[in-house]
Amino acid sequence: MTTAAALTWQRRRESAARFWKQYRRHRAGLLGLAALALFVVIALTAPLTVGSDVASVTEAPGRPMESPSAEFPLGTDRFGRDLLGLLVWGSRVSLLVGLLAAVLSVLIGGLVGITAGHFRGPYATVVMRVTDWFLVMPTLVLAIALATVMSRSLGTIVLAIGVTIWPTTARLVRAQTLAVESRPYIERAKALGGGHWHIMSRHVLPNVMPLILAQTTLMISTSILSEATLAFLGLGDPTVVSWGGMLQEAREAGAVSSGDWWYLVPPGIAIAVVALAFTLCGRAVESVLNPRLGVGR
C-alpha cells in the first residue's frame, strides 16, 4: 500500500514538473506569476512590515496631504496616514476578496454548468434561462443592488461579486459537459450501474477540471476589479482598507482637483497590475492545459 501511495506521489510530481516545463515557455505567464508572487509576499508579510496600526486615523504619524518625502515615500492621506503603508495593508483585502469571490463564482458556475449539461430536459432549460438572465443583467448594477441591501462587510462584497459573475463559467462548463457526456465511456458508466452523482463526479468533473482551473484564474482578476469598483462607489466595508476604498477616499478628499497625484495613482496602478498578472497567468495555464488554443508563447 505504501509503495502504491509513493508511486502516486511520484506520478503527481512528474506531471507537475511537466506542467511547469510547459508553463515556463510562456514568458507573459512567467511575468504574471512573478508579479503575483511579489504581491502575495507583500500581503502575507504586511502584519510584520506595516501592521494594522497603519489604518488608525487617531494615531496618524504625519500631517494631512503631505506630498512624497523621505519619511513618507508616497505621501500621506487626508488624515495624515502613511499612504505606502495603506497600499501594502490594502493588498490583503483586494487579494482575499478577489480569491474568495472568484472561487465562489466558479463553484456556482461549475455546479450549474455540470448539472445543466448532465440533466437535460426541463431542469436544464430552467437553469440555463436563469443563467441567461444573469448574463444579460449588467453585473455591476446587480452587484451594487446586492451590496446595498445587505449589511456592509467583506462577506457581503464577496457574495455580491460571486453571485453576479458566475454565468460565463456556467455556460463554458455546460458546453464542455455536453461534449464529455456524448463520449462512449459515459454510456459505459451508465451500463455498469453508475448513478448521476457517480457520472458527474467521477467522469465529467475530471474532464472539465482544466477548464475550471483556467477559468478561476481569469475570474480572480475580474473579481479584484469588481471589488475595487464597489469600494470606489462607497459600497465596500468602511472599516477595512482596500485599494478601491483608497481611491474613493482620494476622490472625497478632492485629490483629483487639487492635483494630489500620490493619493490616486499608486492604488490604481496596483489594481491594474494585479488584475493583469492574474489574467496573464490564466492565459498561460489555459494554453498549457489546452494546446489546441495556440495562444502565443
Binding site: 465511456y185 450501474g193 474532464n207
Partner: peptide
C-alpha cells in the same frame, strides 16, 4: 442489475475508456 446481472463489452474500446483514469481504477469502478 446493471453490470452485476448483465454487463456489456462496448464496441470501440478506444472510446469506452475514460482517458483521465487509470485502467485499474476503471476496472475497479463497477
Amino acid at each position: 442489475v446493471r453490470w452485476a446481472g448483465a454487463s456489456i463489452v462496448f464496441q470501440g474500446a478506444m472510446h469506452s475508456l475514460n482517458a483521465v483514469h487509470r485502467i485499474g481504477d476503471q476496472i475497479a469502478e463497477p
